[in-house]
Each structure stands twice: as C-alpha cells, then as structure tokens.
C-alpha cells in the first residue's frame, strides 16, 4: 500500500499516541467500567486498549523495517 510505503511520512508520531491511547483506555476507562459494574463496556474497553497497543507495536515494527 502506498500510504504505508517508504519515504518521509507522518506516521512516526502516531506510535506514542497508539501506546498512550491504549494505556489510557486500559487504565482509566476499563477500570471505571469495572467499578461501575458495566461488564460489557469493560470487556470492550480492554479489547480496545489492547488493540491500540497492538497497532502501536505494528507501527513501531514498520518504522524499524522500512
């Protein structure tokens, strides 16, 4: 895909954002949902947080590889 191709691009900045976003979701939102007893929300928040972190890892690897 051209958008993830070589050359100068803007995606390096997204790596900390992926991790930060994921961590905030896991640490803030998932906990809050757990405390509020919203099981479904909590499960989704955990999924969302880990998804963010996983994507962060992918972008990080991409930054190394390219």
């Amino acid at each position: 895909m051209t958008i993830f191709g070589q050359g100068v691009n803007y995606y390096a900045f997204s790596i900390p954002i992926w991790f930060l976003g994921g961590m905030l979701v896991l640490l803030v939102d998932a906990r809050r949902c757990k405390m509020a007893g919203q099981r479904k929300d909590e499960r989704f928040a955990r999924f969302a947080g880990w998804l963010n972190i996983a994507l962060g890892v992918i972008f990080l690897v991409r930054e190394w590889a390219v």
Binding site: L27, V28, R31, R32, M35, A36
Partner: peptide, 16 residues
Amino acid sequence: MDDNGPRSLKRAARLA
C-alpha cells in the same frame, strides 16, 4: 467521576 465514590477519586489522583 464523583459518582463512583472516594475510592475511585484516590485512584484517579494516583494515576494523575
């Protein structure tokens, strides 16, 4: 946040 009681407040403060 305040509707979750003082415990969550403490947690939030620690996180901050």
